[in-house]
Design a binder for these strands. Structure first.
Length: 427
RNA sequence: GGAGAGAUGGCCGAGCUGGUCGAAGGCGCUCCCCUGCUAAGGGAGUAUGGGGCUAAUCACUCCAUCGAGGGUUCGAAUCCCUCUCUCUCCGCCA
């Protein structure tokens, strides 16, 4: 959510900024709602004030044993008018909240302008794109060759966009997860957390998935109102919800491994083959809660932490700064990490690192006590994948494949695989 | 699943025979005083969100908030209803 003062103070400037990311702010509607809100709020509060004065006078009169009948007569009808005003005000406030919850974050000034991903800016590349003197297989074939990747079974069990991993590939999948967690907790200073995979609507509203993107989520039946998490970002960032953090505990840095569940509504026909786009995938997520003045430095370091995983795994990648039009709803600035996929001959997103500034914090009421002012102020929140495990597995199988169908294991992973240096097809 | 107890400010904890209660007291924190170090002591202050006014995130003023939502009442932290969560006992269970 944007700062309401900012929105009220200069809606046209906000609209101009939002236009760069392709969002049309209905300034006129906002003005109308604001005007009505103001008038109704003043009226309501006046009536409340009158009621309070009256009630107090009656209390005093009664204590002194005076006759309260005239005072009661005076208060006649006030309740009804107040109730009506309150109801009206509440209705407008609800509309105003709906309006504001649907407004995306303002892009940071350093974000390149552009309407879609073509305007994204490549910042750097790392690693040599591998050359193969044999026909490159994609991860589906490499995985199948290792007798470890089975989409047919998954389709029978659940449907499209699921996978069953077996044997050494399943183990590699687990090894990747373990390695990432160890790296972030061991050398990057993150605290590992284990969190619920089912969350309530309030949590999703806090991080920005609701109310606008409900169709991307899997909701549970029944009246519990729970959803499967689309990313660990939701439960982990919500650790800061409704809290006032002491300055000393900042920055909070959490690393968290969870499955992620996404309906992938609207992506029909996209990435239908392989593990690139699944309804269920594993991810190690990094989440930071920081002082506002530190958030952009934190974005750089967090991105570096995600890059460190790719480097350790020796996977070629590039870093892209998303343009205004490609930015996620809640993000002020985002770096995407894209890994090289030989079979596709292109870089594909494997991590997304974002600074949300106070956009999520405002929805979450996530604050810290600023020693300079002594007052609770909004924190800044960030997160980034470190990394998406399924895509990392796919990238590894493709980049490290050998002519005989084996897969070379990057050194950092070997301790997690009992020292195995190569994954080899059975038989 | 059954029975019971509870949810109050940064924390602990009174109030719950409805009225000067935004809320005693304590802890913590801030400032001041005293004390030739340390410790102790004395005094003052210390919730959050929002509105109006304003150049102002100053001041002033108003409103809301005692788990959440509704109700009764001139008036609700206090009474009633619903929900959520926590704790205890029983049952069940990985």
């Amino acid at each position: 959510m944007l700062d309401p003062r900012l929105l009220r103070g200069d809606p046209d400037a906000c609209a101009a900024r939002l236009a760069t990311r392709g969002f049309r702010l209905d300034v006129e509607r906002f003005r109308v709602l604001e005007e009505r809100r103001k008038a109704l709020q003043v009226r309501t509060q006046d009536l409340q004030s009158a009621r309070n004065r009256g009630a107090k006078a009656i209390g005093q009169a009664k204590a002194q044993g005076r006759d309260i009948a005239p005072l009661l007569a005076e208060a006649e009808g006030l309740g009804g008018r107040l109730k009506a005003a309150e109801a009206e005000l509440q209705a407008v406030l609800a509309q105003l909240e709906d309006f504001q919850l649907a407004v995306p974050n303002l892009p940071h000034e350093s974000v390149p302008e552009g309407s879609d991903e073509r305007a994204n800016r490549e910042l750097r590349r790392w690693g040599d794109v591998p050359r193969f003197d044999f026909a490159v297989r994609d991860h589906v074939d490499v995985g199948a060759g290792l007798a470890g990747m089975d989409f047919e079974s998954a389709a029978r069990i659940s449907g499209a966009r699921f996978v069953v991993l077996r044997g050494v590939v399943a183990r590699l999948h687990r090894a990747l997860t373990q390695f990432m967690l160890d790296l972030h907790t061991g050398t990057h200073g993150y605290t590992e957390v284990y969190v619920p995979y089912l969350v309530n609507a309030e949590s999703l509203r806090g991080t920005g998935q609701l109310p606008k993107f409900e169709e991307d989520l899997f909701a549970l039946r029944g009246d519990a109102g729970l959803y499967l998490i689309p990313t660990a970002e939701v439960p982990v960032t919500n650790l800061a919800r409704d809290r006032i953090l002491e300055a000393e505990v900042l920055p909070l840095r959490f690393a968290c491994h969870t499955p992620c569940f996404r309906s992938e509504a609207g992506s029909y026909g996209k990435d239908t083959r392989g593990m690139i786009r699944q309804h269920q995938f594993e991810k190690v997520e990094m989440v930071q809660v920081v002082r506002p003045e530190e958030s952009y430095a934190a974005l750089e370091s967090l991105t570096g932490h995600a890059e460190a995983v790719l480097r350790a795994l020796e996977l070629p990648y590039r870093v892209v700064a998303l343009c205004t039009g490609d930015l996620g709803f809640a993000a002020a600035k985002t770096y995407d990490l894209e890994v090289w996929l030989p079979a596709q001959g292109t870089y594909r997103e494997i991590s997304s690192c974002s600074n949300f500034e106070d956009f999520q914090a405002r929805r979450l009421r996530a604050r810290w006590r600023n020693p300079a002012t002594g007052k609770p102020e909004l924190v800044h929140t960030l997160n980034g994948s470190g990394l998406a495990v399924g895509r990392t597995l796919a990238a590894l199988l493709e980049n490290c494949q050998e002519p005989d169908g084996a897969v070379r294991v990057p050194e950092v992973l070997r301790p997690y695989l009992g020292g195995l240096e190569r994954l080899t097809p059975p038989g």
